[in-house]
Simulated assay, not measured.
Amino acid sequence: MAETISQIPLAQESTEVRCQEKTRGGVRYEVILGEPEVKAAPPKKPLSPKNSVSVQDIEEKLKAAEERRQQLESSKIAALSAKMQKIEEASRKKDEQTTQFITATRDALEQKMGTVTEKREAYISDLKTKLKDHIENVEKTRLSLEQQTDEVRTAIEEKLKTATIQRDENLKKMLERLKEHEEQVRKVKSSNNTKLQDLGNAILTKLVQARNRREQIEQEQLEKLKKNNSRPFEKQKSVESTIESRKSEVINLIENKLCIAEQIREKVIQKKVELAKKHNEHLNEVKQTLGNRKSEQVNKIENKLTAAEQKREQEMQKKLEHIKKHEKHAELVRQNKAVLAAKAPSSG
């Protein structure tokens, strides 16, 4: 730590620093102040002498001020009178312009009202004519659609009648064919029965003939045996067995043929019955399709008629709304015209 002590003379002789000490943190020193100095008072200025003013001077000044005031008032009054004249002229011109504007606007509004009323009446007349034409066209279309529906109905009814007639004719033909087939079957049965009877009779005759022949043969054989005892009796048995086997074979063949003929007849009858059923089903399907087509066409025509009627009603409503709007606008124009006509005399 370094310490330095010194005397530092200041600018004035009254102050003095005797010692000074420097450290790391700062500086410490002693200052001795001298006695304060007394300042001298400044010299006073001499007072100026007062002006002496008389009563006459004051009166003259007052008179001059009064004259100036009167002149200012007269100039202000003249300026105000000029301004008032200008304002009166401007108001008069404004009134003239307003009256001219009111008359011009009234004439223009009257002309517009006349043109608007004429246009409105012409437009309403055109709308009425158009509505009449539209109604006539709608009536014509409705009548044409009704005619078309009647024609379609008549055509469908005629087709149904022709279809029913054809179906009845086909059924009659089928029944006649079935009857003919049954008659043929009966004839075939009768012929088969007759043939079977003939065959049975022929078989019986043949059997009788065979028996007779067998008996004759047996007698001849017996006679021969009597003559010749050497032949055996077995030959007779073999002949009888062959005859019986042939007889059974013939009977089986006849029965098989009869069974086959009966089966064929039943198959033919079943096929014809199935064909008749199929034909009836086809006729029923044709009837259903025709009925469905008829109902679809009728529904389409009815839908078209309803759509046309709805469209016509919508157009009529739109046109009536348009006419009402025009009438409201015309009423507002009339009211404005009446208001302007009422205001015109009051403003005049």
Rank of each mutant, 00 (worst) to 15 (best):
K271E: 11
K159N: 02
L207N: 10
E151D: 12
Q335A: 12
I156A: 08
G26Q: 01
L225N: 04
N212V: 14
Q148D: 10
D150H: 13
Q20W: 13
K161Q: 04
Y123F: 12
L127E: 02
S14N: 07
D57Q: 12
S6Q: 06
V17G: 00
Q209M: 12
D126W: 06
V188L: 08
K130D: 07
K318Y: 05
E30K: 03
K324P: 00
G114M: 07
R186S: 14
D95C: 04
L199S: 05
L305H: 12
V188K: 06
K50R: 14
L131V: 02
E89T: 08
T154L: 07
E158I: 04
E3S: 05
E234Y: 13
V250I: 13
A308L: 14
I251L: 00
A122D: 06
Y123W: 11
N51D: 04
E176A: 10
T103E: 00
H322R: 07
K50P: 09
S125V: 15
E331H: 13
K328E: 04
P232L: 07
L171Q: 04
Q263P: 01
K172M: 01
Q270I: 15
I5Q: 00
K130F: 03
D133K: 09
L62P: 05
H279I: 03
L258H: 12
K226T: 11
A11G: 06
I243H: 12
Q270P: 13
S81A: 12
A82V: 01
P232I: 09
T149C: 04
I260C: 03
H322V: 06
I301H: 10
G34Q: 02
I269P: 01
E37R: 11
E240G: 02
T103G: 00
Q236H: 13
A341Q: 11
V250S: 08
I260T: 14
V273N: 15
T162Q: 02
Q7I: 15
K311G: 12
Y123K: 13
N256A: 14
I32H: 08
E35C: 03
L196S: 05
S238A: 12
T117S: 09
T205S: 15
K257M: 13
R142P: 00
E255Q: 05
R334K: 03
I32M: 08
E220Y: 02
K337D: 02
E331C: 09
Q297P: 14
N299R: 10
V268D: 07
